[in-house]
Design a protein around this nucleic acid. Structure first.
Lengths: 104, 104
DNA sequence: ACACAGATTCGACATATGTCAAAGCATCGG
DNA sequence: CCGATGCTTTGACATATGTCGAATCTGTGT
């Protein structure tokens, strides 16, 4: 009944799962507009370093962020189109309006 | 360091968690533009009825869909602004462009 | 009252996920 | 070469989550 390509849906769900966490959502927000080194990415409230690492890894493996070493530090930044890809994983709200106008 | 209100982030993450699943994403797509009774909501591939019920419940408890009984059937539909709320739970891609233009 | 159809709920279970403590790696500065 | 700093990885663990089978509920038709 439902149409949508299954692999698309699965990939979209995986992307969304990567950000469906308060800590990771904060990290993403913190990276908007500028890269930051891990030590500047402490969420509120602060968490142990290894846990921070874990969440960065989840985002990294989802392809949403990337880290580059700068001496002792590692700078993280959003990958190209990361936020666009996230929104694309969600159903488009414009579709609802579309359906309504088509119907009437 | 990171600013964003913690409860906001938590609520947003919860919303996103509700749709971070291939089955539930398909259900959401199927409900765009028209209500459907449960029997018309079988995802691809099909799943047992009780499992379908479970996923509908997750979406219902997230406030994204609502069901109304029509005789023997229950029609589900998107709640008002459901998709808008989902997108709002994600960081706004426009912010990135903003930061860039402000900087230069 | 009965049986049936559509849908939800319950209890048990396996796996996935987030967290912790401890150990490991890479780089810098002496 | 050594210790310190910044970050990651590993192994153990508890809880959350998705799935199943069986039971239950709600409304329909007879």
């Amino acid at each position: 009944m439902v149409d949508s390509n299954t692999t698309d849906t699965t990939a979209a769900a995986a992307l969304l799962a990567a950000v469906a966490d308060p800590i990771r959502l904060q990290l993403l927000h913190a990276l908007i507009g500028q890269p930051r080194c891990v030590c500047d990415l402490q969420p509120e409230p602060a968490i142990p370093g290894n846990l921070l690492s874990y969440h960065l890894k989840v985002l990294r493996e989802a392809g949403l962020i990337e880290g580059t070493r700068r001496g002792r530090w590692i700078d993280y930044s959003l990958t190209d189109g990361a936020l666009e890809r996230l929104h694309a994983a969600l159903p488009d709200p414009a579709m609802v309006a579309r359906q309504l106008t088509v119907v009437r």
